[in-house]
Design a protein around this nucleic acid. Sequence first.
DNA 1: GAGTGGTCTAGACCACAAA
DNA 2: TTGTGGTCTAGACCACTCC
Lengths: 238, 238
Amino acid sequence: MKAKPSAKTATLDEQIRGTIEDNIRSGVWKPGDKIASEIDLAAEYGCARATVSKALSTLHRAGLIERRRKAGSFVAFPHVQSAALDIPDIASMIMARGEQYHFELKTQSIRSHRDDDPLNCKGDVLILEGIHHAGGRPFGYEVRHINLNAVPDARIADFGETAPGSWLLEHISWTDARHRICAVQAGGTIAKLLDIASSDACLQLERSTWRQGQGVTWVRQTFPGDRYDLVAEFTPQS
Amino acid sequence: MKAKPSAKTATLDEQIRGTIEDNIRSGVWKPGDKIASEIDLAAEYGCARATVSKALSTLHRAGLIERRRKAGSFVAFPHVQSAALDIPDIASMIMARGEQYHFELKTQSIRSHRDDDPLNCKGDVLILEGIHHAGGRPFGYEVRHINLNAVPDARIADFGETAPGSWLLEHISWTDARHRICAVQAGGTIAKLLDIASSDACLQLERSTWRQGQGVTWVRQTFPGDRYDLVAEFTPQS
DNA sequence: GAGTGGTCTAGACCACAAA
DNA sequence: TTGTGGTCTAGACCACTCC
């Protein structure tokens, strides 16, 4: 199995990776096909084994090949499609569209954690409700819990000025997150806040965020179905 | 959840990466802080520079640090949150739940490409409509276009047996995909097919798929809001 | 000009799984 | 047992960019 080199100002490992990737993506190499060993590829390309190894490791990370000791590397069978979903900061997103952004804080309270809270933690929880506005119109409703043990600074932050999401983005990093996306009918309360009909379909996004096992924040955002699309682009990483 | 004290048989580069990552995630090192140079870190850990380089490269890929020649490496400022969204094969997903899966093909036709088609291609397009059933109940409605130039085998495939998505997964790979997720009201036609009320909220997922610039398939799936959640887990890659 | 990351080499040893 | 990937070393040169 020989492939033609894709000449460019690419690094050597990019060239190797590129030719292999081309062979896989074009279907010349089928799932399950064996790929030459690192040693053979190094000889073929006249380079060090480490360079081939880097190229193959990258392809493995990208899910294009499987690697097994002693057995070798193989073209991977297609797996579930995975897409990089950007969960943008709402304020930035709206301003990027050229619309004016404004966060309207509806309620703010602190109470100790209850068992039925979505955020699994101890101590005090800051609970915020508010409306995101784009161009003067309501764009989304959000209710958020913040673990004050994890983010003590939130106790004295002014969320009338900065949306909680934007504030948190600048004040804390996270290690794990889980998103849940579903469609719901607005219902009376939210419909009134968003100025839509109570039967209108809304996109609801829930996100739980942890930092090293400690719950940081939980948020549920509700957007009118016709005002917000989530878009995920996927291009294989290099 | 992330195992932090990997006091296990962690490789050296994992240990280095872990130590730095802990310092960043715990907030000991703030965004913008300078990280010791590769040479200094190599001296500190008593290892080769390449090992430190690998650890830092991984952290850079994960978005935790910025790297600039001559200047050095720095703790990155938090950026947009990005999550790996798995778009699973519906048949596999339902069977994984232990429910019985069945695809009911409603219509199948071939016609030449029209300008208003979502799939940008030339030649004949295969158009399929059908219902995904889980446990005997309708689970989702799907309309799909397939570019027969890109997937000639689809002309003779039997989609009464295999759902188009599952069939394609086994017969073609893709290089680029774009997803759009929104919430809509079911409307009369789909409500009847899915046995729900026409005002019920539905999650609608559109996916366009390309292989090396050539459109492969476009699909729009509609799920009752209460029967399907998209879930995205995210843990920074190692 | 000089310091840093980016890449590459030609070895080496080990762990693992297949033969 | 043996081949293969996984990791690591101690160098090297280059490209970039900050000073």
